[in-house]
Design a protein around this nucleic acid. Structure first.
Lengths: 338, 338
DNA sequence: TTGTACGCGTTATCAC
DNA sequence: GTGATAACGCGTACAA
């Protein structure tokens, strides 16, 4: 393993100069610069993260997190992943500021982002898909802040990377699975989260694409529940009463519990195949009752861990992410492999 | 963050003494020892892995890996995980010796273990389930070598930890899934790997337990293929010809390709529901052909990564594993979420 | 029994 | 432009 010191010796100069070249701090003669660069390349120099970590303590690196986790139990596991990772990195001097919010209000998110901006060197955010947020994220990046979008991406922004799933594939997987576990003739009722949320729309798109090839499968009705259980309960009840031919219920986002309660209140639990997303406790309970046959799972814990790890490696080890997208697989979970 | 130096200052003694206490090197007065221990506990001292990593370079830590990967493509992904992780840790001075073997011959494994013993500080091994290997593993541990069992455990041994799946749960998951995707009346033919391999037996056990509750499900025949594709081809053909009522094929371990070729050669591809394990390329090809509906996946890449990470953290960062078993989930994969 | 001093690789600071 | 030096936290050989 080659070190800065070795390069310095071989070039007949000091460590300081080599450091200036490698970290592009300027104030180095062209020739010396080229010499060092060539030597480093030739020897395959790679900075030792342990050394970087040690000296990074002086910077007091701070990560800000802003997650729309309030009232959305899906994010509990995500936040848990973030916290476990943060704890592990605490010893390296990494500090974390935790901020949460409820729902998808752009102004609220903007306000918290502004508060964080002067305090952090990195930001982990589940962003609202809005041009104003894109602009703000770009401001962060321009200010030298490392930005990770978590669970939802804003692809037009300059964020350093995205950690989450492929939503279209989530819908495709759900559609394909459904055709394996539901009746040959299926009349499908769909409960959406919010059509304002890009991911939900993408899931629907993937689902429709996959089941579209099957003549036995028809989508009877689609309703939005705004990710709210009460609303979900009402809308589901309404839908099932209006269409007694529905024998499949596909719940695209949150509000699974409300929808299931509607099914129970109509006594339709044995007549429906129900497919949903994520393994929040209320959903697991409904799986145990036999109401929900399967769910699509998006590795929430690993999403949180991964996001914090990327921030850590960037700030403390000086390692930029290899990829711009860290995609978690859409897994199929039944009661047995939860 | 509290450091050794801070503890030393607060106790009015030198860093050296504190180090002796914390790393239990002896040669410290009782009182001083107790004082330091209390102070460390009170301040919540945790050694900084970066510091440890830096000074660990002098020891030239070496990890030996011994995997029965030859002729078993399942292990390709496991080994890939090991190698990617190893590459990442190379910069810290971690060296790796790669050894492979074919099949389950105790003597071969023993011989390679003996060769490795003097050269390594840690061992990652997919062990054969045999008392002689247990004894040898315990010898390694007694010699201060860190031992991780990978993909297969030997629970009576003193190995530091196991990385792999819960095989019984793998069988249960397969059984439950089958009842969702196979006909109400299913006559099942089972192709085992080797009954000598503990994991294969456990999978069968979990499977039998789960489908045992369903009166419509019957196991018609069980055959062993010794994880060999040719043998698998012959045995499957034999089985399907002897029992024309079989409409479900459950392949417990390797030899998936051979079994599928047998199905094709009998032209039974549209009359069978086939369930298998792992996503090796030949299996994926059979999924694409529509022959195999679903497989159980055991995160082979992550298994390899995790094992190497544990060795790294132990040797270089001086961090012992938190758990004695790192269990990967049995996931359900269909074509869409591979 | 205890303290001192150096090295691991990187970076920041100061002096030239 | 460049070089020397100290500091980060830990381990350890050696001195006292």
């Amino acid at each position: 393993m080659v070190t800065i010191k070795q390069i310095a010796d071989l070039c007949g100069i000091s460590r300081g100069t080599v450091d200036r070249v490698i970290n592009e701090r300027g104030n180095v003669k062209r020739e010396t610069r080229d010499l060092v660069l060539n030597m480093a390349k030739e020897l395959g120099y790679k900075p030792n993260p342990a050394g970087k970590a040690l000296s990074a303590r002086k910077h007091n690196p701070v990560v800000g997190t802003l997650i729309s986790s309030e009232g959305n139990p899906f994010f509990d596991a995500v936040v848990h992943g973030i916290k476990v990772a943060a704890e592990r990195y605490e010893i390296y001097g990494l500090k974390v500021i935790y901020r949460t919010m409820r729902g998808y209000d752009v102004k609220s998110q903007l306000k918290i982002m502004d508060e964080l901006k002067t305090k952090v060197n990195a930001l982990i955010i589940s962003p609202i898909n809005d041009p104003i947020i894109v602009k703000k994220i770009n401001e962060f990046v321009a200010a030298g802040i490392f930005v990770v979008t978590l669970n939802n991406d804003i692809d037009k922004s300059q964020r350093h990377c995205y950690v989450g799933t492929d939503y279209i594939n989530g819908g495709e997987t759900a559609g394909a699975l459904l055709q394996m576990i539901a009746p040959q003739q299926s009349n499908i009722g769909i409960i959406m989260g919010s059509s304002k949320v890009l991911g939900h729309k993408q899931r629907l798109k993937g689902f429709e694409k996959t089941i579209g090839k099957n003549n036995g499968y028809k989508i009877i009705d689609i309703k939005e529940n705004d990710d709210d259980d009460i609303c979900s309960y009402d809308k589901t009840k309404e839908m099932l009463m209006a269409h007694s031919d529905i024998n499949v219920l596909f719940i695209v986002a949150a509000g699974v519990y409300g929808a299931c309660r509607a099914v129970l209140s109509l006594g339709k639990q044995d007549k429906l195949t129900i497919l949903a997303f994520d393994t929040v406790p209320t959903t697991v309970a409904m799986m145990q009752k036999g109401l929900i046959k399967a769910v699509i799972y998006q590795h929430p814990y690993r999403q949180g861990q991964q996001a914090m790890q990327l921030a850590f490696e960037y700030l403390v080890n000086g390692i930029a992410p290899e990829k711009s997208r860290y995609i978690m697989k859409n897994e199929i979970k039944i009661l047995e492999n939860l």
